[in-house]
Amino acid sequence: MLEINNLNSGYGKVSVLRNVTFHVDQDEMVAIIGPNGAGKSTLLKTISGLVRAQSGEVKFENDSIFCLSPDQVVRRGLAYVPEGGRVFPNMTVLENLMMGAYSNPGILKTGILDEIYTLFPILKNRSAQFARTLSGGERQMLAIGRGLVSRPKLIMLDEPSLGVAPKLVDEIYEKIHALKRIGLTVLLVEQNTGYALELADRGYVIENGQIAMEGTAAYLSTSDHIKKFYLGL
């Protein structure tokens, strides 16, 4: 579904990703793990168009989306929930969710908001509140909800547990697990390796801007390298 070949990307002259190659198949949940600064976020930003790729190939459903702008990428059905959520603080929860339908306003008539309120009941209670008044966990749920409004075929989640109170992290992960059950393809970037490998079907380890390891979640969880450096076992 999503195919990345020999992708190079970075900021200005600084190169962050080097020859990254990976793929995500339909209905899969793929995790990308790695230490801080390895280039995980840059990878998602490059796919979504926020960061301009230097070279390589990015294909979504067999069409090239290489170097498209973010507003064009989301129209293809590829949503990106950025690190920290980045909800619109001076807009209400409902307005934030509605912005998710900006590329296709007709979608609001399909009952999508009710589906999102079922998944995140707290958002319904807070719908008239400004997003700036939400807690870290609520913001993250709003950001995920906002990403789902466009009914994407693939959703990319960037560190969904970041800035979330520890007792809420489990809840967020349950919701992500629920996304998989409703048949969404998910690309998950996470520093919390334990969680990521528990949820995902497959994973890639990214170190210094390069793919260092790949395999099924079960394989990665038993690898000595992962155990030693990521799970601290």
């Binding site: 926020l50 507003d71 989301v74 949503a79 990106y80 980045r86 998710g100 900006y102 466009s150």
Partner: peptide, 8 residues
């Protein structure tokens, strides 16, 4: 940036 991710 977030607005452009919404399709703006």
């Amino acid at each position: 940036g977030a607005a452009s991710l919404m399709g703006v």
